[in-house]
Design a protein around this nucleic acid. Structure first.
Length: 653
DNA sequence: CATCAAAACGCCCTCTGCTGGGATGAC
DNA sequence: AGTCATCCCAGCAGAGGGCGTTTTGATG
């Protein structure tokens, strides 16, 4: 059994999915219908938060499959989910190194053969972490031990190795160790050296843990289901094989041992010939009982009767607590448990979960083990149940089966559509009130994001940008800073002027001092503000400057500012109706940024340059050519009428 | 062999929560 | 104009509930 490394899926899903394994499955196991691969032995390991586990672990071979642990697996619990595999007698004997098969009957025996030291790691240590004990946990609440579908190999420290009702400790420190596990017994028997006490009805599993290829970090775990084989069969050079026994030969009898009947098509076995014969009919396809209403055929008259009841509406089992009625008594019992008695006999051993049905507990267990038996054949996603895989397949097909009856928007999931209808088409849209502030948010999940971002305590202090106050919560900081917003904290000592920003005050002070630090290198004209110098230079000295012209859509006359043009246009009754490029821009600006338009309007009132000459002022960015020079006063008409805030705001823009 | 009850299988549903992209507003 | 934070929204997956149907074990 050679190990090969598989790539770890690059696609990530939700948190738990980080635990997933890459599984190399025999091709014949795949069912391509519906895009669903019928893999039943894909397992994921470990705990979700075990992100410290390295990828240094080698692949683990389980049965026919290779499990490549992802970084998150191999957690503290080191749980490996395994399943028994069927081996031919030859294979079984090979697995045992040629030793004869032990005798078996009902119940369960687990034989552990260890050719070398076990190589199971926890805590991501790739080497030097040999754990001599492996605990095999059998979920007897979920499965009868005879039907073990899931075994958990749990790596323990030697000191922690314990034996409990459902836990069997296997010492792998010796070359060969045989462990007998008997259903229903409190104690665990250790049988060393391959000798067994035969008990009628026992079932055997061969569990082998062997080192992989030399120098590689791998361990090969194999569980072989030997229950169907009598020693004589196995030693008989494989004349009959497990699962392939001729039905006519199925009644197998050993002196003093109960007969076992095995299906030659599937793994079904039964000690009763009647059950065996009835089971074989499931493979024959024989359905002699036909519904006269829909022509559907059934194997038994009971099935047909139940089916006809669905046509006639005959539901003899009526619930005493509600109006529901059922075809079978079992349905009624289950219904009553779900709806009325809330009796949940199937309890999870790892958490408080309990369920009405065993299948639900089995499904729930997968949330602990991470097992994902249902593999998407188009991507690396694997699901814990068939429905999720089916739902997932819509992401590949693009199917959106749910349509909003109001706006006809389509959705992949019904729940998404329902939320859409509530949020978009309902009058009383629910709002989620933040418990810490006045914010109301439409979705609970977004409220959670709000709480996380705004109301989470941060260890590092966040300082107010305007004063010395500091806060540990972002919301408090933002609220505090808003108190500074309209505060004109800077007051002029020469006049009544006040402003919000210091830079505004710096410029204003120049109106008192007469300082004009910005001069034009071409004409020596001086300005108090750099922006005014830029305007001046572009207007009078930059020959490449092409001003934006807002044309009157009526007469085509050009203006440097849209509001001047608009004022003109209201009175203009010219015939030219064409909308120029600049006209479009004006329209856009008006629609998208009325505040900016308003500001420009104010500026125009005091600092307009006549645009009829075809040159309008424009405020360039910092890349514009400017000339700095201490200069005497000048250009009063441009500068004096503009406020500091106005110009600085223009510079900001 | 028929029948019943329990178990198992299968399907669909709802509720929940996270995620990421686009829109929007504040700075 | 650019950046950033926030909000809105649809997409998508996890978990579990509920019930119809089929299979199986047990029994008369």
């Amino acid at each position: 059994m050679a190990a090969s490394k598989n790539p770890v899926p690059s696609e990530q899903f939700t948190k738990i999915k980080e635990l997933e394994l890459t599984l190399e499955t025999a091709p014949e196991k795949q069912d391509k219908e519906d895009g669903v691969c019928g893999v039943t032995e894909c397992s994921s390991l470990g705990k979700p938060d075990a992100q410290h586990i390295h990828r240094a672990q080698g692949p683990i071979l389980v049965g026919n499959h290779e499990l490549v642990p992802s970084p998150a697996e191999g957690s503290e619990n080191g749980i490996l989910a395994l399943q028994p595999v069927q081996l031919t007698p030859e294979e079984a004997q090979l697995q045992r190194g040629g030793r004869p098969a032990p005798q078996s009957h009902e119940g369960v025996q687990v034989l552990v053969h260890q050719a070398h030291n076990s190589l199971l790691w926890v805590d991501g240590e790739p080497q030097q972490s040999l754990y001599p004990y492996v605990t095999i946990s059998l979920q007897e609440e979920v499965y009868s031990v005879q039907e073990v579908e899931l075994m958990e190999f749990q790596v323990l420290d030697e000191s922690r190795a314990e034996t409990s009702e459902n836990t069997f400790v296997v010492n792998l420190s010796e070359n060969t160790r045989l462990i007998k596990l008997k259903k229903g017994e409190e104690e665990t028997q250790y049988l060393v050296g391959g000798e067994f006490v035969r008990t009628p009805g026992e079932q055997l599993f061969l569990v082998e843990a062997t080192a992989g290829e030399e120098g590689s970090n791998e361990v090969v775990l194999t569980i072989s289901n030997l229950s169907v084989e009598e020693p004589e069969d196995i030693s008989a050079s494989g004349q009959s094989q497990p699962g392939k026994a001729d039905a006519t030969k199925s009644p197998q009898k050993t002196e003093g041992v109960k007969r076992t009947f095995q299906c030659d098509v599937c793994t079904f076995t039964s000690s009763r010939i009647s059950s065996f014969n009835r089971h074989m009919k499931t493979h024959s396809g024989e359905k002699p009982y036909v519904c006269h209403l829909c022509l559907k055929a059934f194997r038994t008259v009971t099935l047909l009767r139940n089916h006809i009841n669905t046509h006639t509406g005959t539901r003899p089992y009526k619930c005493g607590d509600c109006d529901m009625a059922f075809v079978t008594s079992g349905e009624l019992v289950r219904h009553r448990r779900y709806r009325h008695t809330h009796e949940k006999p199937f309890k999870c051993s790892m958490c408080k979960y309990a369920s009405v049905e065993a299948s639900k507990l089995k499904r729930h267990i997968r949330s602990h083990t991470g097992e994902r038996p249902f593999q998407c054949c188009l991507c690396s996603y694997a699901s814990k149940d068939t429905y999720k895989l089916k739902r997932h397949m819509r992401t590949h097909s693009g199917e959106k089966p749910y349509e909003c009856h109001i706006c006809h928007a389509r959705f992949t999931q019904r729940g998404t559509m329902k939320i859409h209808i509530v949020q978009k088409h309902s009058e009383n849209v629910p709002k989620y009130q933040c418990p810490h502030c006045a914010t109301t948010i439409a979705r609970k999940s977004d409220l959670r994001v709000h709480l996380r971002n705004q109301h989470t305590y941060k260890a590092a202090e966040m300082k107010c940008r305007y004063c010395s106050a500091s806060f540990h919560e972002r919301y408090s900081l933002v609220q505090h800073q808003k108190t500074h917003k309209n505060e004109k904290r800077f007051k002029c000592e020469h006049c009544g002027y006040a402003c919000k920003q210091e830079r505004h005050m710096t410029v204003h002070i120049r109106t008192h001092t007469g300082e004009k630090p910005f001069s034009c290198l071409t004409c020596n004209k001086c300005f108090r503000q750099k922006q005014l110098l830029n305007v001046h230079f572009r207007k009078y000295h930059d020959t490449s400057f092409i001003p934006t012209v807002y044309e009157c859509p009526t007469c085509g006359r050009g203006f440097s500012r849209w509001n001047n043009m608009q004022r003109h246009s209201e009175k203009c009754d010219g015939e030219d109706k064409k909308l120029t490029h600049s006209g479009k821009r004006m329209k856009k600006k008006k629609q998208t940024n009325p505040q900016e338009a308003e500001m420009e309007k104010d500026a125009t009132a005091t600092a307009t340059v006549d645009a009829t000459a075809g040159r309008g002022e424009q405020f360039p960015g910092e890349t514009g050519l400017v000339h700095f020079q201490e200069a005497p006063a000048g250009d009063q008409d441009l500068e004096e009428n503009m406020t500091c805030e106005m110009i600085l705001d223009m510079m900001d823009k």
